[in-house]
Structures are given as C-alpha cells and as structure tokens.
Simulated scan of single mutants.
Amino acid sequence: MENLSFKVAEIEISYRPAFKLAELPQVTSSRGAYEVLMDRWDDGRLELVEEFKVMLLNRRGRVLGVVNISQGGFSGTVADPKVIFAVALKACASAIILAHNHPSGELSPSDADLTLTRKLKSGGDILGISVHDHLIVSRYGFYSFLDEEMM
C-alpha cells in the first residue's frame, strides 16, 4: 500500500480584540450606528467612491469592529455575502449592521440595495447572526432600513 501525502492548507481562526469590552461603544439606535460609522469612514472618499462596510456587534450591541468589505466606483460596489458572513463568524459577532454610501448624496435605496438587504437578512437568519439594520450614509445624514420599516 502506497503512503499518500496530500498538500492542503491549514486553516486557523483567530480574533484578537484590541480593547476591553467596557471600552467599546454601544449602539442602540440608527443614529448611534451612523456616528460610529462616520468616525471610521474616510471623509475624502465619501463623495468620491461607493464603499460597503459592516459593523460587527456582540450580544449587548457593543461594536467589535467596522470592516471595509468593498470599494467600487461612483455608482456601485460589490458586497459579497460570503465575505460579510466570514468576517462576522470569525469575530463571533451576534449581529451586524450593513452600511454603504452613495457618493451622489442621494439617500434613497436602489432596487439592488433592497435585494441585497433581503438576501443578507435571510443569510443571517440561517447563521444565527442578526442583521439589525442597513444604513445608506452621506456627509449630511443617513437612511435607515430599520427606521423606514424596510427590514
């Protein structure tokens, strides 16, 4: 019998929080989420290119981190559900808040925004990761899918 040796990659999962839990901001509203996001958004890109970010939350709504998922052009970007949920699972997030900007400043969701939100909400339900909200942000304000009863 021949001794077979397979070359496969070793997968390691780790998460190293940089702060004590009590030091993390707690998000309890869409306004609070917007403020945390704007603190982490590159102001020079807000009206230049569309970016998609995900805020990771623990069970108590403490922000574990804000992750840059993608950056596109002036009129769109790709938000891959596999990437979004891989990051959330790696950080042991209990919930996420989706966010992207519209460089035009127009805050109304597109049909693609609505479809993506429904898709990610369904995926989160399967994985036990609550999708709390989806914010469309600009320098002058935000649109909350939750506040507008679109979730």
Rank of each mutant, 00 (worst) to 15 (best):
L120P: 09
S70A: 15
R60F: 11
A86P: 05
S5V: 15
L21T: 13
V137F: 04
S75C: 03
P109S: 02
S110N: 03
D113T: 06
K90V: 05
Y15K: 03
M38D: 08
R45A: 03
L64I: 07
V66A: 08
K53V: 12
L37T: 07
L114W: 03
S70I: 09
F6H: 02
L146E: 13
A33N: 01
F19C: 06
T28P: 00
P17R: 10
S122V: 04
A99M: 08
M150S: 11
A95G: 13
G123W: 08
S30W: 00
D147Y: 11
M38P: 07
V131Q: 02
V137H: 01
E47D: 11
E23H: 09
G73C: 04
V83P: 01
A9P: 01
S94E: 13
V131G: 03
D80P: 06
N68K: 13
D43G: 15
L114T: 06
S14K: 12
E50C: 10
K121R: 15
K20C: 05
R118Y: 10
D147I: 04
A22L: 04
A86H: 08
S29C: 01
S70T: 11
L37E: 09
Y143D: 05
M55Y: 08
A22C: 03
C92F: 04
L146T: 10
L24D: 00
F6L: 10
V137I: 15
F142L: 11
V137W: 05
N3T: 11
W41R: 07
A86Q: 09
L114S: 12
E47M: 09
V83D: 10
S104N: 00
G72V: 10
V67S: 05
D111I: 07
L4K: 13
G123R: 01
E148N: 15
D111K: 11
S122N: 11
A99S: 15
I13F: 15
L57G: 02
S94A: 11
E149C: 10
E106K: 12
A88T: 06
M55L: 13
H100M: 08
Q71S: 14
Y143H: 14
S138I: 03
D42Y: 06
L57F: 08
K20A: 15
L127G: 01
R60T: 07
M151W: 06
S130E: 12
G32Q: 14
I84L: 00
L57I: 10
H102N: 06
G141M: 07
M151C: 15
V27F: 00
S94R: 06
A93L: 03
V66L: 06
L21S: 13
A93K: 04
D43M: 12
D43R: 15
S122R: 14
K82V: 13
R118K: 15
V78M: 10
F52Y: 15
I84T: 03
V137P: 07
F52L: 01
H100A: 05
W41N: 02
L46N: 03
D42C: 06
Q71A: 09
V63A: 09
E35H: 09
K82W: 09
K119H: 13
S30Y: 00
P25G: 01
T115Q: 09
V27Y: 01
D42T: 09
G44Y: 06
I97A: 04
R62E: 14
S110A: 05
R59L: 05
Y15S: 13
E47H: 10
S14T: 14
T77V: 14
N3P: 02
S138A: 08
V63I: 08
A91G: 04
Y15P: 01
V36P: 04
H134D: 03
V27S: 01
G128I: 04
A93D: 05
